[in-house]
Amino acid sequence: MRNRQPKKTTTHPHRMLRAVLRADRSGSAWAIGLALAIAPAMILFDPLRDMVWLVRIGVIGLALWLAALGVLMAWGLTRSVVRGEELPNDWWMSMIDPR
């Protein structure tokens, strides 16, 4: 009788973490771009109090979304560390350079 080793699957176990990291990266880029566009717009909209509140609500919504992504990212990375998994360098590089 031979010892049969289970076949390793080719699916990556960190799909959710990859999705969260990508969403966080693109959300952060959008937040920086919007902040640079909103700062001058707030000066123009200053007399229109309702418009200022709408802009503030949008900014707060984006901040909450990025905070939730940060919590999910920390949870995913902690889960990997607790399991003793190591994320290889090519996985991290694929997050920076998606080619």
Rank of each mutant, 00 (worst) to 15 (best):
S94W: 03
T9L: 10
M1K: 14
L54H: 03
L54N: 03
A31Q: 02
G27F: 13
G33N: 15
L48D: 15
W91H: 00
E86M: 06
V20K: 02
G84E: 08
I32D: 07
V55L: 12
K8T: 07
W75S: 05
L69A: 01
I57Q: 02
R18Q: 05
H14D: 11
L62M: 12
L62G: 06
L48F: 11
W65C: 01
D97P: 00
L36Q: 07
D24C: 00
S26W: 12
I43L: 06
D97K: 07
K7L: 05
H14T: 09
A19G: 08
I32L: 11
G58S: 14
A63N: 13
M93K: 02
W92Q: 08
D90G: 04
W65P: 00
M51R: 06
G33M: 14
A67N: 14
A39G: 03
N3V: 14
I60S: 12
P47G: 13
P47T: 12
L72P: 01
K7R: 06
S80Y: 02
G27K: 09
D46P: 01
R49N: 11
R22A: 06
A63F: 13
L44D: 05
I57L: 07
G76K: 00
R15C: 06
V59W: 08
L34C: 05
M95S: 00
A63C: 14
G84V: 06
L87T: 02
M16H: 12
S28I: 01
Q5S: 12
A29N: 15
G58E: 08
E85N: 10
L36R: 06
T10D: 09
A35P: 02
M51A: 11
W92S: 04
E85C: 04
V20S: 12
A39Y: 07
W30P: 00
G76T: 01
G84K: 10
R2N: 15
I57S: 05
R15Y: 02
A23F: 00
I96D: 09
W53T: 04
G76A: 00
P88R: 01
V20A: 12
W65T: 01
L77T: 08
L77G: 06
R99I: 12
G27D: 12
M1Y: 07
M73Q: 03
L34K: 09
L54Y: 03
E85Q: 09
P13C: 05
